[in-house]
Design a binder for these strands. Structure first.
Length: 314
RNA sequence: CGCGGGGUGGAGCAGUCUGGCAGCUCGUUGGGCUCAUAACCCAAAGGUCGAGGGUUCAAAUCCCUCCCCCGCAA
């Protein structure tokens, strides 16, 4: 079939790769415009664009795909299906009407749960133990269209968002291929979502990664896992922002106020009081530094028991 | 030319402003102590102070050039 692919970040890459290696013909790839990125603000092509260019597939980038030029470009490709995976733009009805048989979306949750742009992160933040990937027929709403196939995946206890995204991206690619196969043969199941059961979560923000020490140690660990590569869990510290990369929740209890450093030397490690339980920080990143084991950091920067984290400097 | 922090034995850092013996907390190795230990005591090894050039009697430190790492912002 003639497929137009729309996607941008790493999550979409395995799906595009699977399409390119299949019998289907990828006639065009749409992704977000190149953005200034990294130190020096160099214009950087997204992962999907890099793959598409390496395979000599035409790439289209529109600030707003729903603008007339975008609609015209998609129309000209005369596709059977549009396939989207973390594209980053909302498709208007005019765009959805273009492909002959519709638009298929690969979504990294078990719909109707975790609709929205960051399902993987929110699953982890909320402490879920199960998630998955769903393929669906896109309609004008956000992740509200009829579902096609799904694949449930258990979340590993020590898994962070980066690793889970990587894992689900491959599950998604396989599921997409099965979905297209069934669609082509006309045997794909299709069911409307139960909107009463739906949940939807917003885009991640930097602020979301700020650790609220009054929450339980377990909840803070889940925040750390769910925000792992970005925005990262962080807290205010004397001299800047302390990023907590990895931590464990200890069963022990303490009378100290949430955010209080209990131990802060290389021998005992960095342990911090929370609203419920104690957080043992194992990996961290200090201002100007790189990620390192907490004990390494403490060798050069011992922290005084009793000092408070998370309090804005005056 | 977006803004900023950093590079010092194996790890994390101090020292740089104000040039003058290469230091700290650990780790490693050897020895001691101990019923025992990730504990304690003694000792040792381990350095191109990111690279190159310049100034100086003397440079980790001051000046110039370059390389690399990280944060912010997106």
């Amino acid at each position: 079939m003639r497929i137009v692919f729309m996607g941008t970040p790493l999550f979409a890459v395995p799906s595009l790769a699977a399409l390119l290696d299949s019998a289907h013909e990828v006639v065009g790839v749409f992704c977000q415009p190149d953005r200034p990125q990294g130190r020096g603000n160099k214009l950087t092509a997204c992962p999907v664009k890099q793959l598409a260019e390496s395979r000599a597939v035409p790439v289209y980038q529109f600030q707003k795909l729903r603008a007339p030029e975008g609609v015209a470009a998609l129309m000209a490709l005369k596709s059977d299906y549009v396939v989207t995976a973390a594209f980053g733009q909302i498709l208007s009805q005019a765009l959805l009407d273009i492909p002959a048989h519709g638009t298929v979306n690969v979504h990294a949750s078990l719909l109707p749960n975790y609709r929205g742009p960051a399902p993987i992160n929110w699953c982890l933040i909320n402490g879920e133990t199960m998630t998955g990937v769903t393929t669906m027929m896109t309609d004008a709403g956000i992740d509200t269209g009829d579902t096609l196939l799904f694949d449930a995946v258990p979340i590993l206890p020590d898994e962070c968002a980066g690793a889970l995204t990587e894992r689900l991206s491959h599950v998604g690619a396989a599921l997409l291929m099965r979905t297209l196969d069934k669609l082509e043969k006309g045997v794909c199941p299709r069911a409307p979502q139960d909107h009463a059961l739906a949940s939807r979560h917003p885009m991640l923000t930097k602020e979301l990664g700020r650790i609220d020490w009054s929450r339980s140690a377990k909840q803070i660990v889940d925040l750390i896992r769910g925000t792992d590569p970005w925005p990262g869990a962080h807290t205010a510290m004397d001299g800047g922002v302390l990023k907590v990369i990895w931590a464990r929740a200890l069963a022990q209890d303490t009378d100290a106020a949430p955010g209080t450093v209990l131990t802060g030397d290389a021998k005992h490690g960095l342990t911090i009081a929370t609203g419920q339980g104690v957080l043992a920080v194992e990996q961290l990143q200090a201002p100007g530094g790189k990620r390192m084991p907490a004990a390494d950091y403490l060798r050069g920067h011992p922290m005084t028991p009793g000092m408070r984290l998370g309090e804005e400097q005056a």
